[in-house]
Design a protein around this nucleic acid. Sequence first.
DNA 1: ATGCTGACGTCGC
DNA 2: CGCGACGCCAGCA
Length: 113
Amino acid sequence: MDSKRDFFQDVFEVVELIPKGRVTSYGAIAKYLGAAKSSRVVGWAMNASHKSQLQIPAHRVVNRLGMLSGKMHFSNPDEMENRLKEEGHLIVKDQIQNFSSVFWDPSLEIEKL
DNA sequence: ATGCTGACGTCGC
DNA sequence: CGCGACGCCAGCA
């Protein structure tokens, strides 16, 4: 079965599907993949996203609190915050304001094939 | 080859 | 209600 697909690959596809102006959390992706307890691995996938040739908008992925917990891992920490601001998000203290409104739940937006 | 850490989240006390 | 510990998977020393 293809269910053995790489966990990272699934994460990459979901993250790529995040529409501009929206953000999601590691846990949301993990749950969508059926691994709510593997939220850490989702973050790890983001780390690999830089290695991947695919352009993964990792800046659109934040923690449950809407905090840019992974900004420090970007080429430039300010890049994540800057990009989100360009998409119309308001960042205060490295935290996305109005996070609930811009939150994008894959399990709700993406139709299961 | 083995063990620890790491971009989180949930459960337990 | 607040703090602590565990779990998950993969990369790296």
